[in-house]
């Protein structure tokens, strides 16, 4: 299990990295944490001719808290984000999701941007980003652009990023509506650190009456990309998330998804599991919100 021979470059800036990518074309590949890419290379399923190592680019590291957004630079380690006070307070859904990402050692190296760019449909960071309606920032030699998360994931391990683009940051919009914010993230995997058989993420705001004023809900591991389930969100908006409401939402999710069977689970198992995790995530988010001061 030795990688195919390749060339290696370690740019010091985003501009330099983009130049390398532009010159390298399809043959060039970015390496960030490498926790997904390197196994693929070892198995020779990924065969880049040039590896562009962005780990030492200072401007790709760090978390910033603005008035409307929390921004995570792409090379921020998952462990750093998990330990970060800003994330815990201002993007609590991401903090909850991060606990399920791999395990300590892979989080120490794996990055936020790397997980997004790899686009595993069962990945937790992508699911949280989808639910939070994140914007992906990408640079290339010809400029930069922002990609709404809804347009970012195209299929398993496929994104809207062009080969010459470098994912540089993810911006998470802050929910500013009055009321109590609650989040829930539930996941089931075969072993603790395995990819999710299914996962569910919820963020919501309850008003003083306990009525849901805003909600976003998504499931992962049950399709080719993480899925936001708008019909379930609509069903819950304006309700107090009573058991009937939550049960209906779960049923909507069950009907809305169409997972494929594989070695680990049948299709219907994943649908049932996802629906159940949605119930649990909704209950968790509701509890979370009600526990906060109005």
């Amino acid at each position: 299990m030795k990688a195919v021979d390749f060339d290696y470059a370690r740019p010091a800036s985003i501009g330099e990295a983009c130049g390398l990518l532009a010159a390298g074309g399809d043959e060039a590949k970015i390496i960030a944490g490498g926790q997904t890419l390197v196994p693929l290379m070892a198995m020779r399923m990924a065969r880049p001719a040039l590896l562009v190592d962005i780990n030492r680019i200072a401007e790709l590291n760090g978390i910033e808290s603005g008035s409307d957004y929390v921004t995570l630079r792409s090379c921020t380690r998952q462990a750093a984000a998990l330990a970060d006070e800003t994330i815990r307070l201002r993007a609590p859904l991401l903090a909850k999701a991060l606990r399920f990402v791999g395990h300590g050692q892979t989080r120490n190296r794996g990055t936020i941007g790397g997980s997004l760019a790899n686009a595993d449909p069962a990945a937790e960071i992508g699911l949280a980003a989808l639910v939070l309606d994140a914007r992906i920032e990408a640079h290339s030699a010809t400029g930069r652009r922002q990609i709404p998360i809804a347009e970012f994931f195209i299929g398993p391990m496929m994104t809207a990023l062009a080969p010459e683009e470098c994912l540089t940051a993810i911006r998470l919009p802050l929910w500013q509506e009055p009321g109590r914010l609650g989040t829930g993230f539930q996941e089931t995997s075969a072993r603790r650190s395995d990819f999710a058989l299914a996962a569910a993420a919820v963020q919501l705001i309850l008003d003083t009456e306990g009525t849901c004023r805003r909600i976003a809900l998504g499931v992962g591991g049950v399709g080719s990309v993480p899925l936001r389930i708008d019909a379930a969100m609509e069903r819950l908006l304006g309700t107090r998330l009573d058991d009937d409401d939550i049960g209906d939402a779960a049923r909507i999710v069950y009907r809305a998804i169409d997972p494929a069977p594989d070695l680990h689970a049948s299709a219907d198992y994943r649908r049932r599991l996802a629906a159940s995790l949605v119930e649990r995530a909704l209950a968790e988010a509701k509890r979370d919100a009600l526990a906060r001061k109005a």
Binding site: V38, Q105, T106, N108, R109
Partner: peptide, 22 residues
């Protein structure tokens, strides 16, 4: 391929897989 951990080392004091680093 990064699953078993037998290759764990400390890199700048932080534990990680040495099979997943070049």
């Amino acid at each position: 391929h990064g699953v078993c951990g037998a290759c764990s080392i400390l890199l700048d004091g932080v534990p990680m897989r040495s099979c997943l680093l070049f």
